[in-house]
């Protein structure tokens, strides 16, 4: 929240980020990032799902409710889905989630993001996590009591 005062200093703030990775592309990408020893911030927790289409919008809201500062959903590139069209559904669903729920609840849209990462993009995965973590750090904690 931009309006509320941050109690924690920017440097001390360690965001808690939830990442959904699809089993076939993004999880393998994360694996590759690890194997290749690319460095990225340790603030995120990965949940492996079989397809990004498995991620229901309610999972995102529940994560935010339980105290996540940001949620990132990653899946195969459009056209590469192991289940042919799973990620297309995700894309449509998340466009709606942003438009009707995240925006109307007054949550900053940058906290929830959908990205495509393939199995060979280990470097990109590391960069993406770094960038997203920095972005959340700039936004500050979601839950300011």
């Amino acid at each position: 929240m931009s309006k509320t005062k941050r109690k924690v200093k920017k440097k001390d703030f360690n965001p808690e980020i939830l990442v959904f990775c699809c089993n076939w592309c993004s999880y393998a990408g994360a694996d590759l990032a690890g194997v290749s020893r690319f460095q990225y911030p340790p603030n995120m927790r990965i949940v492996r799902v079989m397809c990004s289409g498995r991620v229901d919008p309610s999972f995102v809201l529940k994560a935010l409710k339980e105290g996540a500062d940001g949620v990132l959903i990653t899946g195969c590139h459009i056209g590469d889905c192991h289940y042919i069209s799973g990620n297309e559904y995700t894309r449509d669903r998340f466009q709606k989630l942003h438009q009707f729920i995240i925006k109307q609840l007054g949550i900053n849209g940058k906290r929830v993001r959908l990205e495509w990462v393939s199995a060979s993009e280990g470097k990109r995965f590391a960069e993406l996590i770094t960038e997203f973590t920095n972005q959340i750090k700039e936004l500050g904690p979601f839950k300011v009591l």
């Binding site: 929240m1 925006k103 609840l105």
Partner: peptide, 9 residues
């Protein structure tokens, strides 16, 4: 939650 301020369409 007190920190949510809806911004409805």
């Amino acid at each position: 939650r007190p920190y949510i301020e809806p911004d409805r369409n």
